[in-house]
Design a binder for these strands. Sequence first.
DNA 1: CCAAAAGTGTTGGTCGTACACCCATGT
DNA 2: ACATGGGTGTACGACCAACACTTTTGG
Lengths: 229, 229
Amino acid sequence: MSYTYEYPRPALTVDCVVFGLDDDDLKVLLIRRGVEPFAGRWALPGGFVRMEESLDDAARRELEEESGVRPGHLEQLYTFGTPGRDPRGRVVTVAYFALVKLSDHVPHASTDAREAAWFSVWDTPKLAFDHADVLGTALQRLKGKVRYQPIGFELLPPKFTLTQLQRLYEVVLERELDKRNFRKKILAMDLLEELDEVEQDVSHRAARLYRFDHKKYKQLEKAGFNFEL
Amino acid sequence: MSYTYEYPRPALTVDCVVFGLDDDDLKVLLIRRGVEPFAGRWALPGGFVRMEESLDDAARRELEEESGVRPGHLEQLYTFGTPGRDPRGRVVTVAYFALVKLSDHVPHASTDAREAAWFSVWDTPKLAFDHADVLGTALQRLKGKVRYQPIGFELLPPKFTLTQLQRLYEVVLERELDKRNFRKKILAMDLLEELDEVEQDVSHRAARLYRFDHKKYKQLEKAGFNFEL
DNA sequence: CCAAAAGTGTTGGTCGTACACCCATGT
DNA sequence: ACATGGGTGTACGACCAACACTTTTGG
């Protein structure tokens, strides 16, 4: 009980980088700050960690409170603690990385007093604190991770076309993929359930819909299977 | 200045998982705790973050203070903050992951009053706090990272044989590799400088020594080259 | 009938894997 | 001479990349 308290403590926050996919634009969720420092600037959703909650819980709570978002995927990203990153004093932030289906969250969603909005990750306003660094780190992580873990599906609606899936990878990886090779590879993994439905309201041939089979993935994963690109 | 201080703050520590390679055993550096809680138990080196230092600096300082080790590679691993992980109260720890050349640090090194020792990662004593989880996470990271980033070299002496290098990968990845294929692949990357020297004091044909070419790696990396297994 | 996107196979090259013997050195 | 590890090449199959036309649907 004793010497834990001999030292002054940094303040501890969580911040969340929430990605969403809007057709073929990758978006990030930002909140406009109401108070100093950086009042009026856009920032990542986040806030102080409470004494009785885990870091993951804190991230989820702040996200819900500030934007009403409940992410399909949430993982710890990196902890930023350079002295001076917050003008109020020493503040260390545990950054999180989250993916949501934009279809579940009205574009330009906002809840309470605070203003929340989705911005293209390639064209964000100037961010508060070191949040541009945090966003950059999150983008790298997304790019790296999407290739060897099937988390991309968290960005799509439950039923999607192969073209939508391909677009997702093209947007995230920032390069074009070959349609035939992409389909061959993804279907060969046997992780997609082919539905007897097609997309609606398009003015051309409608594409078949697929659904990601989480159960099958978990089985294959246990059996030593590795998802890749 | 105001509301940063409205909340009670968790204490913040850093802990380091330091790996070393002893012939063909992977070792981790542990410190025996002198004080409660967990007095007498072995634990990862670490301690409280000071108000004016970055997290990386804190990790390096604690490592130096507690064991005299200056790692060749140091990176942030994960932040552990489950309430209850420290019986003294809420303590959040930023875990680091480090690699050292055991040749630089006398086996079973220790410096000041504290007892420090290297243990086989497959056979550690019962650890304090949640340090067994931290170690497990670090092992996973090492296994994952060693394949697509040339960090393994930080575990070897500056001059090494191809067999030593292969052993390293076998130990870390926990599987045997084919000698001819391994050599073919690693030499094809053109990252090793072939020296005009051989190992000494062996009772059989002496193997040629190689050195990792950091400069060449950085060049190739810029040019879009990706190290892989 | 035109526009727009869906859907579909083959080929050549590269890369990974499996595999066994002779050589150099020290005792 | 023997024991110990050092060093080397080939063949087969799997996977990747490149590439173009026909089909369906709505307007």
